[in-house]
């Protein structure tokens, strides 16, 4: 079959299978066929383990939330197990990047609210006492009381 015949056959098939007009993404392409209805897109978030947050990994097309979960598992968890998987219709997600007013950006000096913005250690040293860090407190919590 030549490429030209192939195209012709494609159009014929397109009509036969009843491509529908006026659906969501329905639009004239190259003046030939009407695009058929698209399967919805779900964004996929995988939570690797109990202490991780769900992270966006990609998206799948699926006709229902049930299928979206099944397909998310296939598309993104073929090798490793997951603690949980979330799917959400892509059109239900609003992103900040397209609205610069709400996009978090580094503006004025925010060091006053960061641990690194403080320098207490030399002062503690003057009082002959040890400075504390959150890591050291957390490590202490893992040892038995009274040690």
């Amino acid at each position: 079959m030549t490429a030209k015949e192939g195209r012709k056959e494609g159009r014929k098939e397109g009509r036969k299978e009843g491509r529908k007009e006026g659906r969501k993404e329905g639009r004239k392409e190259g003046g030939s066929v009407m695009a058929i209805e698209e399967t919805p897109v779900y964004e996929v978030f995988v939570q690797a383990d109990a202490l991780s947050f769900p992270t966006h990994v990609g998206s799948v097309r699926a006709s229902s939330p049930e299928f979206a979960l099944q397909m998310a598992r296939e598309a993104f968890c073929r090798r490793e197990a997951a603690h949980d998987v979330w799917v959400a219709r892509a059109d239900a997600i609003t992103k900040a990047r397209s609205d610069s007013a709400t996009l978090p950006r580094q503006g004025t000096d925010k060091r006053y609210r960061l641990p690194g913005g403080y320098d207490n250690a030399p002062h503690w040293k003057r009082f002959k006492a040890m400075a504390m860090t959150i890591e050291e407190v957390a490590a202490d919590m893992r040892t038995k009381p009274g040690r």
């Binding site: 399967t39 799948v60 097309r61 699926a62 299928f67 099944q70 397909m71 296939e74 598309a75 073929r78």
Partner: peptide, 11 residues
């Protein structure tokens, strides 16, 4: 029938 299902069937 679609790429996603291809993955499922292969698994």
């Amino acid at each position: 029938p679609d790429l996603e299902e291809d993955l499922a069937l292969s698994s």
